[in-house]
Amino acid sequence: MATQKERNAETRRRLLSAAREVFAEKGYAPATVADIVKCAGRSHGSFYLHFTNKEAVLRALLEDAMAQVAIESKTLWRWDEPGASVRKTVRRFIEEFGEDRDLWLLLDQRSSIEPVFKELSDQWFQRLAGGIAREMVATETPGLLRGLDPEILAQVFAAMLSDSTRAAYQEGYSWTGDEMADEISSIWSRTLGYTEMTASAEDGATRPANRRRRRTPDR
């Protein structure tokens, strides 16, 4: 028999899953708490035991997605293989963004009109940049180009990764995840002096880091 703690955890999971489904189907603004509890098969009382309002539900969904990206990135980064780690980390970020694209794009929408989500978006960006900076320090960035400030560079890398991934999903560019990962990780690795080659995730082959694929947006 499930304990009360387990039942509460299951109720929270159902509410979060239902909220995500409702937001995707109806849109965030029109969605109501009543819609969420109906979809989850739970009561209003159960909802308010876990969340104060639908804003709190969305925030919880976003925080879970952010935490997952952070965990994945940390486990993929190896100090003894920095070049390969950059490629794997960038590729996994792109995959995680794709898996939760509905939440990331909803964050973009809400952060433009609601201060609470703008603050969350800013916090996430700083967390992303901070993680990149820590890994740069941990791997001792052997060939960091002269004159570059590591902290500023981490901000630039974070913007490059998050903005290009967002654009790919929002604008419908024809890049594949592997093509994006190759180009971004090549720039990072060359700037940091990790490697002159970028490893392919599929077959272990290498290609020159300065090779460029020309793609045009699907309009």
Rank of each mutant, 00 (worst) to 15 (best):
D100S: 13
L103I: 09
W104N: 06
W104R: 03
L105Y: 04
D108K: 09
D108F: 14
Q109A: 14
Q109K: 12
S111V: 06
S112R: 07
I113K: 15
E119A: 08
S121C: 12
S121T: 13
S121N: 14
D122Y: 03
Q123D: 12
W124A: 12
W124D: 12
R127H: 08
L128C: 12
L128A: 09
A129R: 00
A129W: 05
I132R: 01
I132K: 00
R134C: 08
E135Q: 14
E135T: 13
A138K: 15
A138Q: 15
A138M: 14
T139I: 02
E140L: 10
P142R: 00
G143T: 03
L144A: 03
L144D: 06
L145Y: 12
L145M: 12
R146L: 09
R146D: 14
L148S: 00
L153D: 02
L153H: 09
L153W: 12
A154P: 10
Q155K: 06
A158S: 11
A158V: 05
S162M: 05
D163N: 10
R166I: 00
Y169S: 10
Y169M: 08
Q170I: 11
G172V: 07
Y173M: 06
Y173C: 07
Y173K: 07
S174E: 14
T176S: 15
T176M: 09
G177R: 02
M180V: 04
M180A: 01
A181Q: 03
A181C: 05
D182K: 14
D182M: 10
D182N: 10
E183A: 15
E183M: 13
E183N: 11
S186W: 00
W188E: 10
W188M: 15
W188Y: 15
S189C: 13
S189M: 06
R190Q: 06
L192C: 08
L192A: 06
L192I: 06
Y194N: 03
T195P: 03
E196M: 02
M197I: 11
T198I: 08
A201F: 06
G204L: 04
G204M: 05
G204P: 02
A205E: 15
